[in-house]
């Protein structure tokens, strides 16, 4: 009986925490609630850890946490208070950066940014910020160049999922900055062919 009690108490606390931030009318934590949450956690709401939190919760809509999502996430992080949640962050970061999880987190980050239904692409500026957010920890030099390129080119206005996944593959597989194992005859998305060409041209 005791563990159940403890568990139910924990759930209670988790729920309580949820309602501190939830908007009464929609029974969700809305963007405003998230901002309050962030300020209590003392992280900016654009911090990658918030995105990781959303991933952990399996959150479907950008800027909104439902009760179910909240419960899943908090339980998984074993956190029922702000302080515990704060403490859980370093571990969460570690977890996400593990390659197997990152393969899931990375496309999640893209989908998370598709704010409207049926939207399949994100605009270049958003993509740049997102890249900076999720990839620059591991691949800073590549990401910097890539962002430079994306801002410089004017052929593409948006990035789709295929291209987005290509970026990660590029960072993982291609030697940087030598690029000696890049082969445009392979199935790289064209935007990466162009990126590499641009890199090589700017080198000379």
């Amino acid at each position: 009986m005791i563990p159940t009690k403890a568990v139910s108490k924990e759930i209670e606390r988790i729920d309580q925490l949820f309602y501190t931030y939830a908007d009464g009318s929609s029974s969700m934590i809305d963007p405003e609630g998230i901002e309050t949450l962030c300020s209590h956690l003392e992280v900016p709401h654009t911090d990658v850890r918030i995105l990781m939190l959303a991933w952990k919760m399996g959150c479907e809509k950008q800027g909104y946490f439902t009760l179910d999502e909240w419960r899943t996430g908090m339980k998984a992080l074993r956190a029922d208070s702000i302080s515990k949640l704060k403490k859980a962050f370093p571990e969460l970061v570690q977890e996400v950066t593990r390659s197997s999880n990152f393969q899931d987190f990375y496309p999640y980050a893209f989908r998370y940014c598709l704010t409207e239904d049926k939207k399949k692409c994100i605009e270049i500026p958003v993509a740049c910020e997102l890249l900076n957010l999720v990839l620059s920890l591991q691949f800073r030099p590549q990401v910097e160049k890539l962002i430079n390129y994306l801002k410089h080119q004017n052929e593409y206005k948006v990035i789709n999922m295929d291209q987005w996944m290509g970026f990660l593959r590029f960072c993982n597989e291609i030697n940087f900055p030598s690029l000696d194992n890049y082969d445009a005859d392979q199935a790289w998305p064209l935007i990466l062919d162009n990126f590499v060409e641009w890199l090589r041209a700017s080198e000379n």
Binding site: N160, D162, A184, P189, L190, D193
Partner: peptide
Amino acid sequence: KPADMKKRIESLID
């Protein structure tokens, strides 16, 4: 050009 083919393939993926 192969690049043009890639473009079409990507469009079809899209």
